[in-house]
């Protein structure tokens, strides 16, 4: 394990870099995915069409293609940003489609009578959603959202490989291909880094699941 021990600082910075890609993508994809899910159940037909178009296109497109579009397509349209920003934005867009579908399945698990009763007392669409439907949908949504986000954690390596650099994956690649360390110890170190993140997230998820279960 010498290559790991000797390069702990590199690993540490890669770990932080991965965490930052993951953190931003987590927040961004949850917000964007919730918005798209709201579109998909909205009373406005054009918003519904946009929402389902978004999901169909993004979900059926490989992540690498989404990233290519961001990093090379957008500059052709005159939009310029760092690879890091493009990478994170691509991962947010890609993950939002899955977040949307997880939330929508949760919304469908809430009986139609709940939304009807909310409308009947005069709550407009947004309040019906935020006060009545989403809080109840949350319970059915947490487990699938958890899987979606853990898949995103792993996809962050694709973003790293894509040229963002500096993340856990890139540290591994750098130590092996550029500096010639042997693969098994280096990649074991990388794997441990990802494992720490996903296991911590899994534990957090279990806590959240218990919380929403109690809060009916």
């Amino acid at each position: 394990m010498d290559p790991v021990i000797d390069n702990l600082d590199l690993y540490w910075s890669g770990f932080l870099r991965s965490l930052s890609i993951i953190g931003w993508s987590l927040v961004g994809s949850l917000l964007l995915g919730t918005l798209i899910a709201a579109f998909r159940v909205s009373p406005v037909a054009s918003l519904r069409a946009f929402g389902s178009g978004w999901v169909t296109v993004v979900r059926n497109c490989p992540l690498t293609i989404v990233l290519f579009f961001m990093a090379f397509g957008l500059p052709e349209l005159g939009v310029n940003a760092s690879f890091y920003l493009f990478g994170v934005a691509g991962l947010i867009i890609y993950t939002s489609a899955f977040v949307c579908e997880a939330i929508r399945s949760g919304i469908n698990s809430v009986s139609a009578g709940q939304a009807e009763a909310a409308r009947a007392i005069g709550l407009p669409f947004t309040l019906t959603l935020t006060q009545v439907v989403l809080p109840q949908a949350l319970r059915a949504t947490v487990p699938p959202l958890g899987s979606v986000q853990i898949a995103m954690f792993k996809n962050s390596a694709v973003v790293g490989a894509f040229g963002v650099g500096g993340d856990l994956y890139s540290v591994g690649r750098n130590l092996t291909s550029a500096q010639g360390f042997s693969y098994i110890p280096v990649l074991t170190g990388v794997a441990i880094g990802y494992l720490v993140i996903t296991l911590a997230a899994g534990a957090l998820l279990a806590v959240i699941e218990r919380k929403v279960a109690i809060a009916r």
């Binding site: 009986s111 009578g113 009763a117 005069g122 809080p135």
Partner: peptide
């Protein structure tokens, strides 16, 4: 809001 409605299946907000 001006028209009260009571449903067969109550539909109280479960949460």
């Amino acid at each position: 809001a001006e028209v009260g409605m009571v449903f067969q299946s109550f539909n109280l907000f479960a949460h």
